[in-house]
């Protein structure tokens, strides 16, 4: 088991190299634009000399592989460089924005499961009754609304028309952890939860229906086992497995910081950081983001596989390798 975990963690290395090389290469292709944009942002007059000087300062005039290896060496020693835009340490900046994203991830997941699990089960147990139809219609509608539309609609209704919640979810003027505003947490969470819950509800309903149609359930019913006991003892297990699958997919996206939601609500997490960095061509920051995504990808997949194995020991570790 431990060997399996270690083997999976080691996979992080080729993936890491792969995607950082890829993103480094793409940034490199966009080359000069970065420096020009940077200088213009700083209000510096842009001449060729100034550009060349800045390039030299940032080490951008060296050959591609040299730059990459330098960066990689830095990564291994824990130094991810300094931001092109703010000049601050990349790692610290990045780390300071993580809590906001993690918080939003947690609240969204909890909200989603709290909503989707009961709804999915109810829809399945009351199949084809009005409640089922209602739930299915709602989840279908939820699946067809883009998240930025939901976000704007929620702002419109709750912040503008009703005035219950703030339009901008961050404490103005602060960054990082201090920017987390609890009242402001509601709308972004709701936006994310609506999208995810719509998807989850359908899947959970399908899973429960599938389980309930299996022969062993008929057998249990015939033996006089109560419906709720059937649900909690046997059906729940397969629902859990489905849930793990869905969560594995969602958490990856959420921890990457849903760029759109964070941007709309000005939620100071890594998603918003990513968008801003890309717009400003802040290479070191972008690289940090890419590294973070690689880590999440490997970790989440590993956690999901381990959970599968725990929930259903028949599932062998290292399935299709």
């Amino acid at each position: 088991m431990r060997r399996y975990v270690i083997r999976r963690l080691l996979q992080l290395i080729p993936i890491l190299i792969g995607i950082t090389l890829l993103s480094f290469g793409m940034m490199h292709l966009a080359g000069g634009d970065a420096v020009t944009a940077l200088l213009e942002n700083q209000g510096v007059a842009v001449t060729q000399e100034v550009i060349d000087a800045k390039k030299h300062e940032l080490g951008l005039d060296q050959p591609f592989m040299v730059q990459y290896l330098n960066w990689f060496r830095g990564l291994v020693t824990g130094n991810m460089g300094t931001s092109f835009v703010t000049g601050k340490d990349v790692f610290q900046t990045f780390a300071s924005k993580l809590p906001a994203t993690i918080l939003l991830t947690l609240t969204s997941i909890i909200a989603t499961v709290v909503v989707a699990l009961p709804l999915g089960i109810v829809a399945a147990t009351r199949q084809n009754k009005f409640v089922d139809y209602l739930i299915r219609v709602l989840s279908f509608v939820g699946n067809s609304l883009p998240n930025f539309f939901v976000a704007l609609l929620l702002i419109f209704v709750f912040a503008i028309v009703l005035g219950w919640l703030p339009v901008i979810s961050a404490n103005i003027g602060k960054t990082g952890v201090a920017a987390i505003s609890w009242a402001g947490l509601v709308l972004p969470t709701a936006t994310l939860a609506i999208a995810m819950a719509s998807k989850y509800t359908r899947q959970i309903r399908a899973t429960v229906l599938d389980e309930l149609s299996k022969p062993y359930v008929e057998g249990a019913r015939a033996r006089g086992v109560s419906e709720s006991r059937i649900l909690t003892k046997s059906v729940l297990k397969s629902v859990m497995i489905m849930l793990v699958t869905l969560l594995a997919l969602s958490i990856g996206d959420l921890l990457g910081g849903t760029a759109i939601v964070e941007t709309i609500f000005q939620w100071d997490g890594v998603g918003k950081l990513a968008v801003d960095s890309i717009v400003m061509r802040d290479y070191p920051m972008i690289q940090a983001y890419v590294v973070w995504m690689a880590i999440i990808y490997v970790m989440v997949n590993l956690a999901a596989d381990l959970l599968y194995h725990y929930l259903d020991p028949r599932v062998r570790l290292g399935g299709d390798e």
């Binding site: 080729p14 993936i15 792969g18 995607i19 890829l22 993103s23 793409m26 940034m27 292709l29 966009a30 634009d33 990457g256 760029a259 998603g271 990513a274 968008v275 890309i278 717009v279 061509r281 972008i286 983001y289 890419v290 995504m293 690689a294 990808y297 490997v298």
Partner: peptide, 22 residues
């Protein structure tokens, strides 16, 4: 398959915006 792993792990947003940048 390993290549597809790389693309799966790659944040779509970064990729999209990077392509736009390039």
């Amino acid at each position: 398959m390993r290549t597809s792993d790389v693309f799966l792990a790659f944040p779509g947003l970064v990729f999209a915006l990077a392509i736009a940048g390039v």
